[in-house]
């Protein structure tokens, strides 16, 4: 049990790191992109740059929340 917990903690620290809000921001943005693609049929050439901008906005918001929390 200790090994599994340690293994999970190692990967969490490696990928998610100090600020889980960034991981949440990325996953939520990609999930919204998937909905836009499947439910609304947004064309790929429109969706890809819009999602690029959305990822940047999500990162800026996550960082702002992090800084304000400290």
């Amino acid at each position: 049990m200790g090994f599994i917990r340690g293994f999970g903690q190692f990967w969490y620290d490696l990928i998610v790191g100090d600020d889980w809000k960034i991981a949440v921001a990325v996953v939520v943005t990609l999930a919204i992109g998937t909905v836009a693609l499947l439910a609304f049929g947004v064309p790929a050439l429109v969706l890809t740059p819009v999602l690029g901008v959305a990822l940047m906005a999500a990162f800026a918001i996550a960082l702002a929340i992090d800084v304000r929390g400290h």
């Binding site: 990325v26 990609l30 992109g33 998937t34 693609l37 499947l38 790929a44 050439l45 969706l47 890809t48 740059p49 999602l51 690029g52 990822l55």
Partner: peptide, 27 residues
């Protein structure tokens, strides 16, 4: 990372092909 992650959303479409960015790799 942002290029590949968004491109990979194509797995959810019927064709299961990667999504295209305008300008391809230049993006």
């Amino acid at each position: 990372g942002s290029y590949w992650a968004v491109e990979g959303l194509g797995i959810f479409t019927d064709s299961r092909q990667s999504l295209d960015w305008p300008g391809a790799d230049l993006a």
